[in-house]
């Protein structure tokens, strides 16, 4: 199954077939999500209107973690099976994940000030998400740090795998330690902790963001593949020229 997409041609064929669908789904879902987030959902019984920050904060947080998991899996596939497309996908996803992490951190801060009474605390949840952001920056920096692209790929892939240990820490930090951040609501068993009128915009935004992630990974992977092809053509041309002058 994986081998089928290891080939850039097949990957691009599939990606280009998916792209228009993912694009329209992104627009529809985020549009509907915004409608529900601002119009068709009530204020919270405790937080009042400030609950509307949740509809961008929580999906961003999920995407920040999902994108990192995606990078870690792609890096593992790239390291073990040497599939060239895997590294391209990991590299394409990193800036997207970093952006979602930034959104998660800033919106969380903007929620925390009026609700908790502080912009930031160094509790386990907030700190581990900040670490996630630095892991993204490290991954991007490392991937571009070497003249030899293959070396950068390997180094950044190892960093991605090592950093993956942070994902369960983020997820379970609110259960393992005392934190200021509240525990998970949506994955809670038993009485739904989020009322359906608030769950609708939350899930719409979450699926919409996921579709946006798919679109952006495809767009960035295409750019990266074209870039590699350009470099390959250039070096082939230089080779050809030196061979000619030598003959």
């Amino acid at each position: 199954m994986l081998h089928r997409f290891a080939n850039p041609t097949r990957f691009l064929r599939l990606a280009n077939a998916v792209l228009p669908w993912a694009t329209s789904l992104t627009v529809i879902l985020i549009g509907a999500g915004l409608y529900f987030a601002f119009g068709a959902s009530p204020a919270d019984y405790q937080q009042g209107e400030t609950v509307r920050i949740m509809y961008v904060h929580v999906p961003s947080a999920w995407m920040a973690m999902f994108a990192y998991a995606f990078i870690a899996v792609a890096s593992a596939v790239g390291l073990i099976w040497k599939h060239p497309v895997a590294h391209v996908c990991a590299l394409a996803a990193a800036p997207i994940g970093a952006c979602f992490t930034v959104i998660c951190l800033t919106t969380g801060s903007l929620w925390g000030k009026p609700m908790w009474g502080t912009w930031w605390v160094w509790d386990a949840r907030l700190t581990s998400v900040l670490v996630l952001f630095f892991l993204y920056l490290g991954f991007i920096a490392l991937a571009n740090a070497f003249d030899d692209a293959a070396r950068g790929e390997k180094a950044s892939a190892i960093l991605a795998l090592v950093g993956a240990v942070n994902l369960p820490i983020i997820k379970f930090s609110v259960d393992w330690w005392n934190t200021l951040h509240q525990p998970a609501s949506v994955t809670k068993i038993g009485m739904p902790a989020v009322h359906s009128s608030m769950l609708i915009p939350l899930l719409l935004m979450a699926v919409g963001f996921t579709m946006l992630f798919v679109v952006l990974v495809i767009v960035r992977a295409r750019a990266e593949l074209a870039d590699r092809r350009i470099n390959a053509l250039r070096s082939a041309r230089i080779h050809a020229e030196t061979a000619q002058s030598g003959a």
């Binding site: 920050i53 952006c99 959104i103 919106t107 903007l110 952006l216």
Partner: peptide, 25 residues
């Protein structure tokens, strides 16, 4: 609720960050 500033700046920041990302990509 008097917290409009926090709400709008949250969504504003998300919009700006995502627009820049989409544009560059």
């Amino acid at each position: 609720d008097g917290h409009g500033g926090f709400i709008w700046s949250s969504w504003g920041i998300a919009l700006v960050v995502l627009t820049i990302l989409i544009g560059i990509s």
